[in-house]
Nucleic acid binder design. Structure first.
Lengths: 244, 244
DNA sequence: CGGATAGAGTGGTCTTAACCAGTTGCGTCG
DNA sequence: CGACGCAACTGGTTAAGACCACTCTATCCG
């Protein structure tokens, strides 16, 4: 029971180890105490705690003062706050994420998409449908639409791994700045259910996101379906003194 | 230039100090180096960094490795639709809102609620269940739980109209500051369906919210069910230049 | 037998002290 | 005069340990 000796931050290696460790545990089960884990893994407690902090923030683990640390309900949590590092698609709950590209191609926008992207209806739009998979389990279907002029030369490989936003910035000079996102409840239709390996009419979240670059131009319009049993959105609200 | 000697976690006092310090700075201005601030404030660097971490997470500060730490680009980092006027339940559509109180009474917290509210299990908790109605159409079921000591004297009328948060502030001196909210997809159960006038297994959003006052004390834990066809959550995300 | 209590174990916070890794600017050498 | 490179910053990571606060349990006393 030791850490991979691979590269990367020790704290990340600890976190990955814990993810593996937790993978085949039931929800709500206790993990070893922090002090035990330190000895076992040969790391200091601050390092271990930093790793656990990540997993608590992402909902994988739940701490209870004086009792122990437990596996969370089996859910992936997406923080709405823009993460300082990594793309904000990237759910903080780690595990091995990848994308299966189901569709990739350009076509005229048509009336609805044209309005969403603020383009002419005849303008070309790149449409990408991808299945997001964690540890071989389908989690979400994303349907992305981008003005084709912005991303001429983009290939499916660019979306398979890594941060799509970084590709946008480094290869296409598109600097994503802000997004407006709406979330609503829905249930899966037949094709969605099949792709996500759940029954039809299964609870799901539909997330629509419109993303803008630094100049306020629309970069993408995305409509996604997330499995309701595996996904959860967390946000932190702050009120100023005057708010009711 | 010292910390308030008040109670509370040192890291929180440092964070509050920094908030004051940053308040009248221009965007993008540098704050003193971490080591200088440690000396100045008489705290260790991990503690200082923990405080800065909070402010970076909320967008107030931006770190740049090797250069320094700077005030964030956008002064207001409103996480989610916490509307400037009115409570952040903020009805999506206009119309005439009111609440039908279904349940109103105090009882011991019990183990789960005690943990959520950080109370003793025997402590009294005010439980309020209300149906939110717009134009005679049921929209949501809210189940609120508040520490009874905070709101002794609250009557159902207080929750029928107007902003509950204003009542809390003006009548009970409870100053709501922040909330953490999670949203997930679900479907209505039998009783929920009946109350909301929708079929059973109808798409719905379950929203759990933990609200804290200015001192970090927990004010309420609320679990609500929103009709999926009538409700939608909108949030606005902002990215700094370095985000992937 | 029941309740109070002490102890052991848990996570929570904070300190001191290194060293690593980028960035910048100034001094020196070509 | 210009370019290189070192030194002195900056933040980033990790360590080891102390002490606090909370929870649970087992023991002791009424």
């Amino acid at each position: 029971m030791t850490l991979n000796t691979g590269a990367g931050l020790k704290r990340d290696r600890v976190r990955d180890f814990l993810l593996d460790f937790v993978a085949d545990m039931k929800a709500g089960e206790a993990i070893p105490s922090e002090r035990d884990l330190c000895k076992e893994l040969g790391v200091s407690r601050p390092t271990l705690r930093a790793a656990i902090d990540d997993l608590v923030r992402s909902g994988v683990l739940v701490r209870e003062h004086g009792r122990g640390t437990f596996t969370g309900p089996h859910r992936v949590t997406q923080a709405l706050a823009a993460t300082p590092s990594g793309s904000f698609y990237a759910p903080p709950a780690e595990g091995h994420w990848l994308s299966r590209i189901l569709e990739f191609g350009a076509a005229p926008a048509g009336p609805q998409l044209a309005r969403r992207l603020q383009l002419a209806p005849a303008a070309l739009v790149l449409r990408v449908v991808r299945l997001r998979v964690v540890d071989d389990e389908p989690m979400a279907i994303e349907r992305l639409h981008l003005p084709h002029v912005l991303v001429d030369g983009l290939v499916p490989d660019d979306m398979e791994s890594g941060s799509f936003y970084r590709v946008l910035r480094e290869r296409f000079g598109v600097d994503v700045r802000s997004a407006v996102q709406t979330i609503e409840a829905t249930v899966t239709d037949e094709t969605e259910a099949a792709l996500l390996s759940v029954p039809e009419h299964f609870p799901a979240l539909m997330v629509e996101r419109t993303t803008r670059d630094v100049n306020g131009g629309i970069v993408e319009f995305t409509r996604s379906i997330y499995r309701g049993d595996r996904y959860r959105v967390t946000s932190e609200l702050h009120f100023d003194a005057a708010s009711g």
